[in-house]
Amino acid sequence: MEDDDILDTTEGPQPRPQSLMLTFFGNHVLEEGDLGVYSGSIIDVLGRVGVGEQAVRSTLTRMVNRGLLQRQREGRKMFFGLTPQAGRVLIDGRTRIWKQGAVNDDWDGSWTLLGFSLPDSWKRQRHDLRSRLTWSGFGALYSGLWIAPGHVDVSRVVTDLGLTAHVKIFHAQAAEVTDIEQMICDTWDLESIAARYVAFDKRWSAHLGNGTDHDPIGTRLRLVSDWLRTIRTDPRLPARHLPPAWPARPAQETFHRVAQQTHPALTAARATLETTHLRS
């Protein structure tokens, strides 16, 4: 399975159906354990954000085939729930969204460095490793040496990809002669990261001024999916080494304001979604 298919690290004007599908399950299923949702309910909710029925059905089938969803038939209806693999992805996303936050004010001065050397023919493995490292907050200091702020445990990533013998991981601090601000500018595309936050804040600040929300379920689905896409390539760099007025802070405040407004959607969804408990 390609990591980009799970993490949706590709660029584009709109999130892909699979990204929205994972957000849907993260919003309404992750906390419920073995819950399965009727395909008709999924079609209804994703239809609110512009995903057609055929796209929903094909995405559900593809995600089952890739081990992200499990399905269970009851009579003429098909119900879908999370697999352990998808659960791990969503738990990671939940931590990034609701616990860590986008602003790193408590950096301890440490860095995690990962060096790798792969055969030239291992293009797929190299792509997978880089995708997973980007999601984990790493940037390319040099071609085969990646760095991330803080103590980042990527041992499972390396093991899952079967690259343990080709990777070396270190935890260290920069010497005083190192210009950390310059290193950050050289390693990460700060302009692009900042632009994502500015665009998010603009979109959702406008939403806050629109008054009554007639579809909080659809709004929350769009909101969380959009925020996850915004923070996905942000390594949470130490705030004290970023440019003044870094836009992640106001964007995060806007996210939480809209999230608070749409929180009743979680209760509303429980009343409208047709569900069942999946058999082990």
Rank of each mutant, 00 (worst) to 15 (best):
D5E: 14
D5C: 11
D5W: 03
D5G: 12
D5S: 11
I6G: 06
I6C: 08
I6H: 04
I6R: 09
I6S: 12
L7P: 08
L7T: 14
L7V: 14
L7R: 11
L7C: 05
D8L: 05
D8C: 10
D8E: 08
D8M: 06
T9L: 15
T9E: 09
T9S: 00
T9F: 12
T10H: 07
T10N: 00
T10A: 00
E11F: 10
E11R: 15
E11Q: 08
E11D: 00
E11T: 09
G12Y: 05
G12Q: 03
G12A: 03
P13A: 01
P13L: 01
P13K: 03
P13N: 02
P13Y: 01
Q14N: 09
Q14T: 01
Q14S: 09
Q14R: 10
P15M: 07
P15D: 07
P15K: 06
P15F: 09
P15Y: 11
R16Q: 07
R16K: 10
R16M: 05
R16H: 00
R16T: 10
R16E: 06
P17S: 08
P17I: 12
P17K: 08
Q18F: 13
Q18V: 15
Q18I: 10
Q18E: 06
Q18N: 14
Q18Y: 09
S19N: 10
S19K: 11
S19A: 13
S19D: 13
L20K: 11
L20T: 10
L20C: 12
M21T: 13
M21N: 00
M21L: 12
M21D: 07
L22C: 12
L22A: 15
L22S: 13
T23R: 10
T23W: 02
T23V: 06
T23G: 13
F24D: 04
F24I: 01
F24T: 00
F25E: 03
F25S: 03
F25A: 05
F25L: 03
F25G: 03
G26I: 04
G26L: 07
N27I: 08
N27K: 01
N27M: 07
N27G: 03
N27P: 01
H28T: 08
H28W: 07
V29L: 10
V29Q: 09
V29N: 04
V29I: 11
L30Y: 05
L30K: 03
L30S: 06
E31D: 13
E31H: 06
E31F: 04
E32Y: 12
E32F: 14
G33D: 15
G33S: 12
G33M: 14
G33Q: 15
D34V: 14
D34H: 14
D34K: 10
D34F: 09
D34T: 15
L35R: 14
L35N: 11
G36L: 10
G36W: 14
G36T: 00
G36R: 12
G36V: 13
G36H: 11
G36E: 07
V37G: 08
V37E: 07
V37A: 00
Y38A: 00
Y38H: 06
S39P: 04
S39D: 12
S39G: 14
S39R: 04
